[in-house]
Design a protein around this nucleic acid. Structure first.
Lengths: 195, 195
DNA sequence: AACAAAGGTTAACACTGTTAAGTAAACAGT
DNA sequence: ACTGTTTACTTAACAGTGTTAACCTTTGTT
């Protein structure tokens, strides 16, 4: 059973150091001092292995977010903290973040629905915060879950543009993230004092 | 020279119908009634071919956006039209949209910088609209280009969550996009009348 | 007629994911 | 102590991959 963990570790190393295209069964096996076929004793196929890696990464992200949650803080501050934690995680562990969104679902129809529930719990972390804001009438929200997804999606977009190096070189990263976070949050807040 | 176009067309067909993993040089060649090596007469390698496909898709997206631009319309309406046109394009041509963001830059360091300039022109389409809003003091903007990227990123995130089937099944797609567009735009607008 | 370029081809190399079949060691039951 | 079975792995093979070097034809030019 130790080999399973070894395979996961080696796979992740290769993925991070050498890139996705270099992550072949034989290469993984070689670095784990077994043959490629041994991997199939612990994973149904390559997709299944990839899935396990995705799961790990999702958990890491979830933990990074969980760490930053502080119910004592002001509501808007909480939203901002989470957004920034998310962005920081993605920029600090770009490969790990990429893994999460790497699966092209059309090519992986076997992707088990229930696996996504672990991501869901992260959404619900955010939805919880939003619900509180709603109670305090600080925020204009219909369904907190939808709002959580909306915020999530927007942040993911911001991050993904940066990770894919799609950002104009003339734009400083920090200014971009600052403005993005600012706008995303403002999109939800009820502004009581017009500028 | 006609073969080059034939290859592009066949490649796109395979990519859309059979998925990325099935898009092999030999399969493309077979369907174009040539041998795989012939492709190398027109494209340096597979990445180069993929790049050409990306370029095509970007242009299609750009055209879809261009169609919707109408300077006669109200500024906020223009923003919304563009956002909706973008989302519609992505949802109507998911594979084509995916192609645009398919490149994993780490694995494709040869990606020529200047190619991105064509995307840039699309950003500048958006930046132009934003500039007008700034002049009219309808919008709170520092640098229109940054804002254009921010909006773009947010919309991309929204779209990408849906395309990757990451959206909670309990959430109706339309409600999600409506709310997303609403919030993204509101994040930029100076609200004069608090609710 | 001779030469060169254009537009292809065949054969091969070193890889890929995956499967069927085999092996060798550890353990369990009688 | 002899079976039988399970566990953990290996070897060999299949069909496919991207890519290159070398080789043909056909076409056009001088």
């Amino acid at each position: 059973m130790a080999l399973r963990e070894e395979i996961l570790e080696v796979s992740k190393d290769i993925l991070i150091q050498d890139g996705f295209s270099k992550m072949s069964m034989r290469r993984i096996a070689r670095r784990a001092n077994v043959t490629a076929t041994s991997i199939y004793l612990y994973f149904k196929n390559k997709d299944d292995l990839l899935l396990a890696l995705i799961e790990e990464s999702i958990n890491d992200l979830k933990n990074a977010l969980q760490e930053v949650v502080d119910p004592g803080k002001d509501f808007i501050q909480q939203l901002e903290d989470m957004a920034r934690a998310y962005i920081r995680f993605a920029l600090d562990h770009p490969k790990e973040y990429e893994i999460i969104y790497m699966v092209r679902p059309e090519e992986m129809p076997k992707y088990p629905r229930e696996k996504f529930n672990e991501v869901r719990s992260a959404y619900e972390l955010l939805a919880g915060i939003i619900s509180k804001g709603k109670e305090q009438n600080l925020i204009e929200v219909d369904d907190p879950l939808i709002s959580a997804y909306t915020i999530w999606a927007q942040i993911h977009g911001v991050v993904s543009v940066m990770l894919n190096k799609r950002l104009d070189t003339r734009i400083p990263r920090e200014k971009f993230t600052d403005q993005a976070v600012d706008h995303i949050i403002k999109g939800f807040i009820i502004q009581k004092t017009p500028a």
